[in-house]
Design a protein around this nucleic acid. Structure first.
Lengths: 339, 339
DNA sequence: ACGATTGACACAAACGATTGTTTGATTTGA
DNA sequence: TCAAATCAAACAATCGTTTGTGTCAATCGT
C-alpha cells in the first residue's frame, strides 16, 4: 500500500501532524531544522504522496472542477475544454468532463453527481430546457460560470459571444453580394445563442430588405442530420434560397453534404456562411466563409472567472464577459447569380 | 451544509450504519419494512446525497478513471474521450481528462497526480519518450489500457490500429495510380504508431519499386507547423514527390495549406492521402482520400477492457485489441501527371 | 421450559489527512 | 529565583462513509 502520513511520521520519529504542517509549508511555523530534514528524508525514502481523497474530505475542498458540455467530440467544445484543463492543471485543479448530449435529463444527473463529488466549481454549457440546475448550483453557493449560453432571468457568471453582431455581419455580407433570399439554419431553437443569432439575422433581413419568411427559418438541432435534412427541405423549394447561414459545426457539414449531393455548386449556385470552428474550415470544398470563436480566449476567461470565484468563496458579483467572433470571408460566398 | 448520513439517521431514528446498509441495498439484509420506509422518507425530505469523497476514502475506490491524451482538442482524441466518458457514466465512473501535449514531463506529473487522486484505472496515449510511467502504474497494480501506442518491451492492455496494413494500402493505392515518388510525413518518429506506419510505407515502397530515399521521410511532430514546414521542404526539391502520406489531423491541415500556398493543385499536381478523423475530411478542397479510425470502437473497447480489469482487481492477463482503419478513396489522389 | 438460533439493529473502528488545543521543556524577564 | 513567555512537537477531534462485531429481544427446537 501507498505510504501515509503516519508512515512518514514513524520513520521520522515525529507526530503525523508535524509532518503535515511541515509539508504544507505553513508560514511562521517553528520547527527545528533537524526534524524538518528528517521529515523530508522520510518522505523521500518512502516516496510519499499525499492522498487527495483524504485531504478533500477533511478540507472540504477537492481541487476539482466540473465541466459540463453538450459534446466534447465537437471541436468547439473540445478546444475550450483543452484550455480549461491546461490552465486548471497549472493551478492544481483537475477537471471532470461530462457530455450532456443536449439532454436535460443527463444534465440533471451530472449536476447532482458533480455536487456529490464535491467539485469546487463548475463550468457549463447548459442545455437550457430548464434553468433548474443552474439555480440549484447557485443555491448551494458553488461557483459557476456559463459558457456560450445564458438565461434571461437568472444572473450568472458567463463568457458569451457577440452573437447578434456576428449573425448580422454575416447576413449583411450576403446582402451586399446581392442575395435576397437567405435561410437561417438554426440549432435547438430555445437556446440563448440561437435566439441571439436569430435576432441578428432578422435585424439584417429587415434592414437590407431581404425576403422575410418563416420557411427560411429551419432546423431545431445541432447534429449532422439536422443540417442535412434542413438543407434538403430548403433546396426542394420551387425557388430555393441563394444564401445559407449555418449555426454549428455539424450542421455545416450536414448542409454541405446535402448541397453537393444535389449536384449544386458553392458558391455559384448557393452561398454559405457558417459558424464553424474546425481547423479544417479554411480548406473545405471551397474554403469556408466562416464565423469562428476565439476558443482559447473563451476557455481561459471562463477558467479565470471560475478561479476568482472559488478563491473569493463565491462572494463576487456576477460577471458576464462578451468575446468577439472573427469573420473570415473565403470562398463559399459569391455574388448572386443573375437569372 | 449538505445533509449527511447522520442527519438522515437522526431523522429516521436509527443508526447511521443502518441507513448506509439500506441505501446500499445489500442482499439478504434484514431490515423491517417500516424502518426502511422511514429511512427513505428521511432521505427524501432532507434531499440526501452521499458524499463520494468520504465513500472513496473509506472504500479505497473512487469510481474515477484517468484519461491521459496528448491533446483533447484533436478530433481523434476528443471523440475517443467522448465515448469513454459516456460509457463510464453509464457504469458510475467519472473521467478526469489530462492533456500531455506530447510532453513526457507533463505525463509524469499527470500520472503521479492521478495516482494521488486514487483513480481506479487509467486509459492513456503515452508520449513514449519513456516507459517509466507505464511501468509505475503497472507496478502499483492499477488497471491500465493504452490506446494507439504500445511499448515493445512492456506488456499492457491496449487498443491499437492495424497501422502497417493501413499505410501499406495507402501507398499501394498511390503506386497503382502510377506514383513513383511518395513522401512520408511522419509525426514524432519514436512513437509506436509512426514506426508501424513507416513499416507499412517502406514495405510498399520496396514491393512496388518506388523511389526509396531518406529525403522522402520528413517531419517529427504532430502539429500544423510540422505538416506545413515538412511539405514546404518537400515542394522545394528539384523534383518534388507526387504523392504524400500524411499521418495526423493537424499535419494534414498544415500540408494542404502549404500546397495551396504554393499554387499547386490537388490531385493534379500532387496526390495526398491522410490519416484523418475530422468530420470535415470528406468536404475538403478536394474531398480527402483518407484513412480514418473507428473512433467509437476504439473508445468503447478501451473502456470495456479497463472496466473488466477494474472489476477483476487487475488479475486478468493483458489483452491487446487491434481495430481496423477505414480507407476512403476520394478526390485527393489521382493518376500521376505524365510529363 | 430452557438453551440455541435468528432477526433487527446499534456500536465503534477504520480510511488518511488537517488543525485547534495541550503539554513539557527551555528561555526570558524582573 | 520564580512566574511568565516562548518553543517544538504531541494529542485528539474531525471530515462522512463503510463494515466487522456486539447486543438484546423474539422465536425456535426438543
Amino acid at each position: 500500500m501507498a505510504p501515509t502520513l503516519k508512515d512518514v511520521a514513524n520513520r521520522a520519529g515525529v507526530h503525523p501532524s508535524t509532518v503535515s504542517r511541515v509539508l504544507r509549508k505553513q508560514e511562521n511555523l517553528k520547527i527545528l531544522e533537524s526534524t524538518r530534514k528528517r521529515i523530508f528524508e522520510a518522505v523521500e525514502e518512502l516516496n510519499y504522496h499525499p492522498d487527495f481523497t483524504a485531504r478533500a474530505l477533511r478540507m472540504k475542498k477537492s481541487f476539482t472542477i466540473g465541466l459540463i458540455v453538450p459534446d466534447i467530440g465537437n471541436p468547439f467544445f473540445s478546444r475550450i475544454a483543452r484550455t480549461i484543463e491546461q490552465l486548471g492543471f497549472e493551478k492544481g485543479y483537475t477537471v471532470i468532463v461530462c457530455n450532456t448530449d443536449e439532454d436535460q435529463e443527463k444534465e440533471n444527473l451530472y449536476v447532482t453527481h458533480l455536487l456529490s463529488r464535491g467539485v469546487d466549481g463548475m463550468i457549463m454549457v447548459p442545455t437550457q430546457d430548464s434553468d433548474e440546475q443552474v439555480r440549484k448550483i447557485m443555491h448551494k453557493n458553488i461557483p459557476l460560470v456559463l459558457i456560450d449560453r445564458i438565461f434571461d432571468d437568472v444572473e450568472t457568471n458567463a463568457v458569451i459571444s457577440n452573437n447578434v453582431e456576428s449573425a448580422f455581419t454575416a447576413v449583411k455580407h450576403l446582402a451586399d453580394l446581392g442575395h435576397k433570399k437567405v435561410a437561417f439554419l438554426r440549432g435547438r431553437h430555445n437556446i440563448y445563442t440561437m435566439k441571439k443569432r436569430f435576432e441578428g439575422y432578422i435585424k439584417a433581413v429587415k434592414e437590407f430588405g431581404l425576403i422575410e419568411s418563416d420557411s427560411l427559418i429551419v432546423g431545431d438541432g445541432f447534429s449532422f442530420e439536422d443540417g442535412y435534412n434542413s438543407t434538403k427541405i430548403l433546396l426542394e423549394c420551387p425557388t430555393p434560397p441563394t444564401g445559407l447561414l449555418l449555426t454549428g459545426n455539424l450542421i455545416t457539414v450536414g448542409a454541405i453534404s446535402a448541397i453537393l449531393e444535389k449536384g449544386l455548386s458553392i458558391p455559384d449556385d448557393i452561398s454559405v456562411i457558417a459558424f464553424a470552428d474546425s481547423i479544417f474550415a479554411p480548406y473545405l470544398i471551397q474554403p469556408l466563409t466562416a464565423i469562428s470563436h476565439p476558443l482559447f480566449e473563451i476557455g481561459s476567461k471562463a477558467f479565470d472567472l471560475l478561479l476568482d470565484n472559488i478563491e473569493a468563496d463565491n462572494e463576487l458579483p456576477s460577471n458576464q464577459i462578451v468575446v468577439n467572433t472573427q469573420f473570415d470571408i473565403r470562398k463559399t460566398t459569391g455574388k448572386v447569380k443573375v437569372i
